[in-house]
Each structure stands twice: as C-alpha cells, then as structure tokens.
Design a protein around this nucleic acid. Structure first.
Lengths: 192, 192, 192, 192
DNA sequence: GATGAATGAGCTTTCATTCAT
DNA sequence: AATGAATGAAAGCTCATTCAT
C-alpha cells in the first residue's frame, strides 16, 4: 500500500506546484483546492492564510538551497566560502528556475503584504547571518572593508542578475565558475 | 490663461503617481479616475488597457533614466561608457527609488501578463542595444570575451542588487564609484 | 409608460424589503442582487458598503417617522410636545412593525460595526436634539429636573417596550393615549 | 487536589465570557474552543448547538438576576414587589452591563433563529409568570386595570431603556429609586 | 468522553472592462 | 471627447456542523 501523504502535505505540495507554475499572486485558493483535493475549509484548517502557506514553502525552498551550500562553515577561509556560496546559488538556480523565481517574487511581495510578515522576517534573518559572516572575514583581513550592502551587491548581485535573465545558452558549470571568480575578485582584500 | 495639461497627460501623470506610490498591481483604475478627475470612460478612450497605461509610463521612466546617461556615445571608450552607465544607474536609482521599484515590478510582471507585451518588448529592445554595444567593445578588444548574460550580470547586477536593498546609510557618490570601479574591473580585457 | 424607478432606488427598495423581512444581519448582498435585478457591481457602484445601504435606509425610515411627528415645534408647550411624540411613536410603530424592528436592530448593531458609523452618528444626533429640547422645557419649569437618561427612559421607555412586544390585542389609539398620559405624568413638574 | 471544574462547566464559562465580551453573533465556536481548551468535538458532545449553549447560559444569567429579586413573594403587597423588581433590575443591570446586553441580544435573536427556540420559550415563561402576578395585584385592587403589555411597558420599559443607554454619569441608587417610584406611580390604582 | 480533520456553502468586496448616451 | 452606470467573475476567508477514530 503506497505511503499516502497526509492532507497538510498534499496541500503544501499542490500550493508549491501552483506557485512555481503561476506565481504566488496569480495562484488562488481555488487552484490549490482543485489541485489538492482538499476542501477550502481544510486548507484554512492547516494554514490560517494564503501567506502562511507561502511562508511554509519559502522555508522549505530555502532549506533546499541551504542544503546545496551546506558545506560552508563559519571558520573556513573567506575565499572558499564565497566561491561556494556563489556557485551554489548559480547551480541551484539553474537547476530550479521556477523555485528561484518564486523566492524572488516572495522577496518583493513580502515588503508590502502584512500577511507575508513571516516571510519577510525569514529573509531578514538570512541577510543578517550573511552580513555577520562578512564582518568576520573583514576582521580576519581576508576581504575588503566595504559597507555590507555594497559587499553583498558585488558578490551576489551578478548571480541574481544572471539567474533572473536565465538563458539556457550558457553552460551552468562555466557560469558558476565565472561568477564565483568575479565575486571573489570583487571583494578580496587588496594587496598593499 | 493657465497652461492646462490635456486629459491624456493628466491621466498619465496620475497613473504614474499611483504606480510609484502603491505599485502597478495595487493600483486600480478607480484610483486613477479619482486622482485625475477623468471618467472611467475617458481613461479607456485614451488607453485600451491598464497595461497600455503602464507601457506609456515605462517608456517615459526609461527616457528619464536615459537622459541621465545621455553622455554615452557608441564610439567612446568602453571604460568610460561602462563607468558612466553604472554610476548613472546608481545615482538615478538612489534619487528616484519609487521609479526604480516601479520599473522592477514592471520587468517581472511583463513576463507573465499578456497585456504588458509592449512593456516586455520595450525592455527587450533595451537589452539588445546594450548587448550590441558590448559586442562592439569586445571586437575592439577592450573587454573580456564573455557571454552577454554574464557580462551584463557582472556589470549591472551589483548596481541592481544594491538599489534593491537601497540603504540610506551609504553615500550615493561613494556607492556609484565603488560599483562603477567594480563593473569595469570585472569585464575589462585581461592582460596576457 | 410607467415611471420606472432608477437603479439606485430599485436597490434601495429591495434592500429595505429584505432588511424588514429578514433583518439586516440575515440579509446578504446576494439577496439584494436577486431581488433588485441589479448586478453585484452595480450595488457597490452606488453604495460603498452594506453599511452604506443601511445608512441610507435608516435616514429614510427616520424621516418617515419624523413626518409623523412633524407637528412638534420647539416653542410649543412641553405637555403637547411630549404627548405628541410618544403617541406619534406608538402609532407609527404599530403601523410599521417591521420598520420599527429594523431601526431597533440597527441601533444595537451600530454600536459595534464600524461600517455602520454613519448610522450610529445619525442616532446620536437625534438623541442630542431630544436632549436639548428637554433642557429647554426644564428651564421653562414645565418638567422635572431629571438627568436626561432618566427623563428619556420615563417618557419613551414604555413606548419602546410596548412596541417591542407588539401585541395586536391592544387597540392602537388606546395604547397611544395610555402611554402618552403616563409619559407626561412621569416627567411633568411636581407641584410645590 | 484542586477542584477542577468539569469540561461542561469549562465550556459554559468560556462561552459566557465570549458572549459577554463580543456578543452571541460575533462569537464563533472556534473562539470557545480556543478559550476553553476543549476540542470542537467535545463542545458538540455536550451541546448539540451553538443555540443550546446560549440557552444554558440564558438560564444561568436569568437565575443570577432572579437571585437579586428573590425577596419578591407572590403574596407581598404590589407596591413592595414592583419597587423591588424595578430597582433590582436597575441595580443588577448597572452592575453587570455585559450580562444585560447579552440577554438583550438573545431576546431579539430568539425571535428569528430556530436554534434558539429554547431561549425564546424561556423568556416567554418568565413573561407569563410576571403577567400572572400582575393579574393577582389587579384582583386585589392594588394596581390599575391595564392590558398586561401596557402595564409591563409602564413598569419596566423605563428601566430597560435606561440600562440600554447606560450612562455612568447617573448614580445607581438614585436611578433605582427614581425608576421604582415612577413604575409604582404609573400603575398603582387610581383613587376615586 | 474526547479529538481534530474535514466539509462546503456562504459571505462581503474588488476590479478591469464595456457600452449606451 | 467624455460620461458613469453596469457587468459578473473572481477573490480570500469564515463558520456551524459532522464524523471516523
């Protein structure tokens, strides 16, 4: 007998499928109801909000990306960490373009929609952690003394931009290397 | 006799104000009607769609940004052109954050909404022009031989990323210089 | 050709019929749509709220009652005014029990529902006017020096209570006289 | 070992708290579930309906008020009985305004909602008892020969009306006396 | 006695768009 | 060129109640 997933999971899976397919804003509760076989009431039994659904999924999606960059340790050299995180992002993003687009949409919607407060907080926490890590590298003298927003932009901005215009014509491996190289070049401590 | 703007312009101005204030998705035709004093019918007389309104405004907004980088000529050295265009983007984006956010929103909505086809085309045309320019620089040997999506990402990705998280704590001039430097460093032709 | 009422009026009439039949809370917009032939959108074109509909109707209903007591003048003797207003209320309430019940429901809902703020204000204004009138009578020495809430209760409380339990077994004229007498007896200035 | 109240009582207590706080209509079963710690199923195990809950509570609430007027005996003089019942109502209503408001709401809802038939019956029974008592006083020649609805209105209408507009500016004791006096004056047998 | 997942009809409100005048 | 009434599908969400365990 197959291991039937429970209702909560069915709903979550359907919601993710819809969000990836159509985007968050364009997905209606009715879509999720139809896709999952659950009733409207059932959906709201498990998730108080459309936003709560998104929140649960953002967490799941980020966890997936996190796994891809799990190798990064706080005490590893800045160069290795930064290269790994950029190329991890690029590889993951090229493998799962819909997921990447979904997170992108959530990031901007979370700024305005109060039902997405959880999502916003989630992103904020991630950003803080990264910022703290960069501060460490700076103290160790491995990276340039840049304001965090600039440092972030120099390291990850190109990857995000590249993924946003995702073009199947570029080989993932090559793109990952080029962008990781550039990220490290842009922030590594300048010699005397 | 005062130089009363015509209806079309009144509508366009109000629409822009609303889009900048609330975003495209959150602006209703009723908002524009109320703000402009024009009737619903009048709005649809001049613009066949909500999308058509956006289209006209995207053109106007981009024209404004274009003016800021008007100094860029096809035959000027790559370095000057690239630096100018990056720092132009940064300065403009910090001066007009709402406008920048609006263009960002439009760029992503245009991918899905068929009534925004014009907008999508408009962005595509801009991208093509930039791509052509980069090809020229490459032929002249001034820049690295990179796939255009990568080159674009290296030059402008950081600026876009920086503006997206727009932080009033960083001085505009400093940010523009840092990002322009980085852009040029990332793509300039490598010595032997 | 019959004088077809306009949409706004059709909606208002249907809404009143529903409110009188079922009460405000139990009436849905769908009921009004079905009864009036107007579309949902049309209803919301004329009335921003379910509450706005109620507000318009409360005004109309009170105006109707006002007409019944139109004879009351600020400068007429307290006795005549009070008798007229009590018996006017009783006669009107027995003639239009549904209308009376509707106003009663609105009075209590208006305390809590913010979309009924207009209704609340409307009732409040009426109460203020009555209170001011009583203060005048008091100054003229025609009525007892009672706190307004008590005076109101003594004069109109019995009529409201009687109408609430409306019993067809009591002759309207007799009821009106008994209650008007009692109202005047209860508040008229006591002799030395 | 602490005297833990049983589930039924917990549910009832929470329901009352909710009804007093928000009113019957605005209270959902979910509210009661959350407040009482009982499950939905448990609530429906003890009470077949939302209405059954209300019914049990109306009984309790009226019993409370009954205790306040317990001194009233069938064979005591009409004047004492009427004064006691009016001032008892006023004192009780000023002390427990939420309870009073709740009973008021129930009285009007019970007229329409079939699940509140019990409540309606309960109120009716109370009214019958009072009516029978008045008939006795009438036979004894202590009170006016008035139709019961009018007599009720004259005696209790002012108190109800006063409590409905409950104004903390009037001293309870004074209000109770004024309203009790008026009640007796209004119905006591007229001299030749 | 107790649980809580499941139901589904129903609610108010929004909004881009059409069209007769 | 201009009006604004009219449309109706669609949205997110609520809630009393049922029932298998």
């Amino acid at each position: 007998m197959p291991n039937e997933p429970d209702r909560r999971t069915q709903i979550l899976d359907t919601a993710l499928a819809c969000f990836l397919d159509r985007g968050y804003a364009a997905t209606s509760i009715a879509d999720i109801r139809a896709g999952s076989g659950a009733s409207t009431g059932s959906i709201y039994h498990f998730f108080s909000n459309k936003g709560a659904l998104a929140s649960a999924l953002v967490q799941r999606a980020i966890a997936g990306w996190g796994a891809a960059t799990a190798a990064i340790q706080p005490d590893m050299p800045a160069e290795a960490a930064i290269r790994a995180s950029v190329s991890g992002l690029v590889i993951w993003g090229l493998e799962r373009p819909a997921e990447r687009r979904f997170l992108d949409e959530m990031r901007s919607l979370a700024r305005l929609d109060p039902t997405l407060a959880d999502v916003a907080q989630f992103f904020a926490r991630g950003a803080d952690a990264a910022s703290a890590l960069y501060a460490q590298y700076r103290q160790r003298g491995e990276v340039r003394d840049l304001p965090w927003p600039i440092a972030h932009a120099l390291m990850l901005g190109p990857a995000y931009d590249f993924l946003r215009h995702a073009d199947p014509g570029v080989a993932p491996a090559q793109a990952a290397i080029l962008l990781a190289d550039a990220a490290w070049d842009a922030v590594r401590a300048r010699g005397t």
